[in-house]
Amino acid sequence: MRSSDKLFYYLLKTLAWGVVGLLAAMVLVVLWMSWEALGHFGLRFFVDASWDSWREEFGALAFIYGTLVTSFIAVLLAVPVSLAVALYLNELAPPWIARPLGFFVEMLAAIPSIVYGLWGLFVLAPFLRDHVQPLLATYLGFLPFFQGPQMGVGLLGAGVILAIMIIPTIASISREVFKSVPESLREAALGLGATRWEMLRIAVLRVALSGVMGAVVLGLGRALGETMAVTMLIGNRPQIVWSLFESGQTMASILANQYAEADSSLHLSALTAVGLALFVVSLVINSLARWIIWRMQRVV
């Protein structure tokens, strides 16, 4: 290699590996900053639900609970809708419907989180309060999830806005996955006399199942780390309650609320430890999702 070529090559290589360095530095910095809190509280930090900056008692359990509940609601609501839109656009819709409809769903992904938050706070939450929560309380009120004050904002509100936000993620990856299913399988199913739905079920959904799982896990990853929209809709009270109408707090929303105004170094460190937990969970979830999708694409 010529020396100019070598120089160029090593420059690019350094910058490319710098991206890995960035990721590693991120892990180290966040770990280092949470060391004080982790040393002070130990693993109890993750199973303790008290959060009191006056008495300097910190535990992340209430936030972990809030994150899990809101993400679970989001996935539960988003998966059927995302799969429906992906199947419809890929397999059923004529191009003149598929193009604009696909465009609108894709543009959902482009809307900034803060705009979802604003819309959620002033439009979605009042709608939930006036129309959805009364219905849920009337017909499903015997369940502990649908009891208590109907305020619109809360775990349910945050879950619904998250669902809307992860639909484009799950839908677009599912569409990729469905596309990779060989046409011959569909033809075989139809040739055997299957109806179109039976064809979709047997030749598309079942074959693509593991890839769809990957898409769902990726959507879950996005929901876990989503910050602004959730912060604006969850009510911001750390508590562990059955009712989905109640306020909550997620790992991301406590950071948005308190990080800039932390009272003490232990408080800051405890907040960073919450961030560390969020970071690790999202790394694991996203690695898992990519592994599932990669494996599926290799098999088909």
């Binding site: 991120m26 910095v29 900053m33 910050t227 950071l255 790394l283």
Partner: peptide, 12 residues
């Protein structure tokens, strides 16, 4: 993976 890091963690 870096793409999927929650943006609030980038802030930290």
């Amino acid at each position: 993976l870096l793409t999927s890091v929650p943006s609030i963690v980038v802030g930290i």
